Amino acid sequence: MVADIWLNKSHQLVPGAVLYNSPRSFDLWGYSPTFGRLLLRNGHFPDGRHDGVRVDVLFQSVRAMKLRQRYEGLQICCASEEACERIRRETPQTTYLGGDRYDHSDRFFVLESGSGFDYVVAGAIGWHEDRAPLSWPSYFADPIPSPAIL
């Protein structure tokens, strides 16, 4: 089974909507501040079972985040208006001269897993599900340059 989803349009990201829900464990797999890319990866269930399926969740153009290293089960929602206001209050460093530096392209996502309030403010979210080994680069990784270019 292979699944590809990419969400970055307003009609796809309705406040309060559940975008992704999984009983699997997810780890913070990588972050690139240069490109604002945040990757969460799953390969196992909380009990340690592995069914051969790998899921990568990518946030693109990340502006702010509050995360855990590991999620035992994960639900990602579009933030409600109340959650957006809470995120704005928790991220005062993202204001500039008293104005809101978040713009119309920024989307507010809430990550739920047990207790706590985690979030990512980013331009888009996507996920890819495949049967590749966990050690392989992400589907979302930049392509490896051809040897002729090196």
Rank of each mutant, 00 (worst) to 15 (best):
M1I: 07
D4P: 06
D4S: 13
D4F: 08
I5P: 02
W6V: 03
N8G: 09
N8H: 15
K9D: 01
H11T: 14
H11A: 15
H11C: 15
P15E: 07
G16D: 02
G16V: 10
V18K: 07
L19K: 04
L19Y: 06
Y20M: 01
Y20N: 05
N21K: 07
S22V: 06
S22K: 00
P23I: 06
S25V: 05
S25E: 14
L28A: 01
G30P: 09
Y31I: 05
Y31K: 04
S32K: 14
P33G: 09
R37V: 05
R41D: 03
N42Y: 04
G43D: 08
G43T: 04
H44Q: 11
H44E: 03
F45C: 04
D47Q: 11
R49T: 10
V53Q: 02
V53S: 10
V53Y: 08
D56Y: 04
V57G: 01
Q60D: 12
S61H: 14
V62W: 09
A64Y: 11
L67C: 02
R68A: 09
R70W: 05
Y71G: 08
Y71N: 02
E72N: 13
E72Y: 15
G73D: 03
G73I: 05
G73H: 01
Q75C: 14
Q75Y: 11
A79I: 14
E81I: 13
E82C: 04
A83I: 01
A83G: 08
I87P: 02
R88G: 02
T91A: 00
T95D: 01
Y96W: 09
L97R: 15
L97S: 10
G98H: 03
G99Q: 09
D100Q: 00
Y102N: 07
D103H: 15
D106K: 06
R107E: 15
R107M: 14
F108H: 02
F109P: 10
V110N: 03
V110F: 12
V110K: 09
G114P: 08
G114T: 06
G114S: 12
G116W: 10
F117N: 09
F117Q: 13
D118P: 01
Y119V: 08
Y119W: 11
V121W: 06
A124N: 04
W127E: 09
H128L: 02
H128Q: 04
E129G: 08
E129M: 11
D130F: 05
A132L: 11
Y139C: 00
F140V: 02
F140L: 02
A141G: 11
D142W: 13
D142C: 08
I144G: 00
P145I: 15
P145D: 01
P147Q: 06
P147A: 15
A148E: 05
